[in-house]
């Protein structure tokens, strides 16, 4: 029996706290704010046998004081995915990142420079790759959120997908690139594959995936805007592309702006 499918995300950048706020005196923290927000949005499954609804169960969360090399981690969130995933639903990473973004914006004023996501691609295996066309169409429908993004909002990004000890991702990457280019969408323009690797610290525990990092590929392109919403959409699309091309294990996604322009979430 396989273990719980874990969704994990970490936001990297800077977080300016609200003026006069002492984080050590606050009654809330990243954990309690994430629970409150995801409960309000209908995303939280209560840890109770008769609970209904929800797309994830809470695991843990934390706020960092900004140690390590930049871009520094400012907050992280970990949940267990409620399965099975319906054939017409993508991985709920856009909701996860949106919730995480709401939490850090509640704590202070964030500037997002990079993000990390653990994508449990194996949880898509409940439906055949061919039947996941509906999930891709759901993503193309939700791409409408970005359709009027200003031209100057488009931001260059490098996105590294890492399969850890599973080698399939590396060989599948060229076909994934071609598949993404064939979709009628303007959220992510994928220019090329590159050997440059996006690295963020601290690393995620190997126990949550087939770590440590090893078999990987970096997709270089541009996003309609640099935001948690757009990153979540892209992560969900890359999960679908990975599954469609034979990946059946968790992938570590690491994304970073490749331009110097500063933008707010």
């Amino acid at each position: 029996m396989r273990p719980d499918s874990i969704l994990f995300t970490a936001l990297h950048g800077e977080l300016a706290l609200q003026p006069g706020q002492d984080p050590h005196l606050a009654a809330s923290d990243a954990y309690s704010l994430f629970v409150a927000r995801s409960a309000a949005m209908g995303w939280l499954a209560e840890a109770a046998e008769d609970a209904s609804g929800g797309i994830w169960g809470m695991n843990d969360a934390g706020q960092d004081s900004g140690c390590g090399s930049p871009p520094k981690r400012i907050a992280w969130f970990q949940v267990s995915l409620i399965e099975p995933i319906a054939a017409d639903r993508p991985l709920p990473v856009q909701a996860l990142l949106s919730c995480a973004g709401d939490v850090v914006a509640r704590i202070g004023t964030p500037r997002l420079d990079a993000a990390r996501l653990l994508l449990p691609v194996q949880s898509l295996a409940g439906s055949a790759a061919s039947s996941r066309v509906s999930a891709v169409m759901t993503l193309l429908q939700s791409a409408g959120w970005f359709v009027d993004c200003a031209r100057q909002s488009r931001t260059g990004v490098d996105v590294t997908l890492d399969g850890g000890q599973d080698p399939i991702l590396r060989s599948a990457a060229p076909e994934m690139l071609a598949w993404i280019r064939g979709l009628a969408q303007d959220v992510f323009w994928c220019d090329s594959l590159t050997d440059e690797v996006v690295v963020l610290e601290p690393a995620v525990s190997d126990e949550l995936w087939l770590g440590p990092a090893y078999h990987r590929a970096t997709f270089r392109g541009s996003l309609a805007e640099w935001s948690v919403d757009a990153l979540g959409w892209l992560a969900a699309l890359l999960a679908e592309a990975s599954f469609r091309h034979g990946v059946t294990t968790s992938l570590m996604l690491t994304a970073r702006r490749s331009s110097d322009s500063a933008s707010r979430m």
Binding site: D4, I6, E46, A47, G57, M58, N59, D60, Q78, S80, S205, E207, L208
Partner: peptide
């Protein structure tokens, strides 16, 4: 209230 028991470092938590 509680959360789902999960792996945290070298522990279950």
């Amino acid at each position: 209230n509680g959360d789902y028991v999960h792996r945290s470092g070298s522990d279950a938590s």
